[in-house]
Design a protein around this nucleic acid. Structure first.
Lengths: 108, 108
DNA sequence: TTGATTCATAGACCATTGGTTATGGATCAT
DNA sequence: ATGATCCATAACCAATGGTCTATGAATCAA
């Protein structure tokens, strides 16, 4: 059972709170856990847990400075997601092409 | 609390079995529940349930013919997902630009 | 050193979810 | 009409997930 890296990505982004955290980090850059907690509307441990999930998915990284932890987004980790959607669209187009071929052959 | 359409999408695609079903429909086109079940490795009711979730997310549609139900993919429903990832990347680039501006101003 | 602050981890709790079996409604074949 | 097939729904169960409070480790300030 190779743990599909896509799976971690999709599951991490399935939660709206986590998407909001990631979105904030993308938009406003590096933030401490305290600042993120102040805007998240949930407890600090909950925020830490969400950040842990995002980190394990490679979507964020942390930097320790004194007693605070700064988190920042790594939007490059979204690549597999983009690849997958492209692939789905590609399958679709490919299927359509084959249908055109079929119709073309039937036309003769 | 308006139910974010993105939320339905992300949550629907968070499950590997559902992604596999959707992928199969994208790749091979319309399929009956029976055929999908034969390849899914889970029970028919489980497949039906997953298809229901995908349908509510707008990712598939169903067509009834006799006693079978044919499902097909609607990959256009992936658009909000693509938009979101683009927006995240956009935030990132914007942030970088603003940083450049800041450095430029500091340089003077 | 003592106390306050910042964050992560542990444990408990509740809702959600993904799976099962059982069943029923339609449709087709005989 | 009878039986078989296809699918959806219902009822249930185990596991997962998101939240909280409590606590501890590390750092900073006094």
């Amino acid at each position: 059972m190779t743990p599909d890296p896509r799976d971690l990505l999709f599951r991490s982004l399935a939660d709206p709170t986590r998407r909001a955290l990631f979105e904030r980090l993308c938009r406003d850059g590096e933030q401490t856990v305290g600042v993120l907690t102040a805007h998240a509307g949930i407890s600090q441990p909950a925020v830490s847990k969400h950040l842990g999930v995002l980190k394990r998915a490679g979507l964020v990284r942390d930097r320790h400075q004194g007693r605070q932890t700064h988190y920042s987004a790594l939007p490059g980790a979204l690549a597999p997601l983009i690849d997958w959607t492209s692939q789905m669209a590609g399958f679709w187009e490919g299927r359509f092409d084959r249908l055109e071929d079929l119709l073309k052959r039937m036309d003769q």
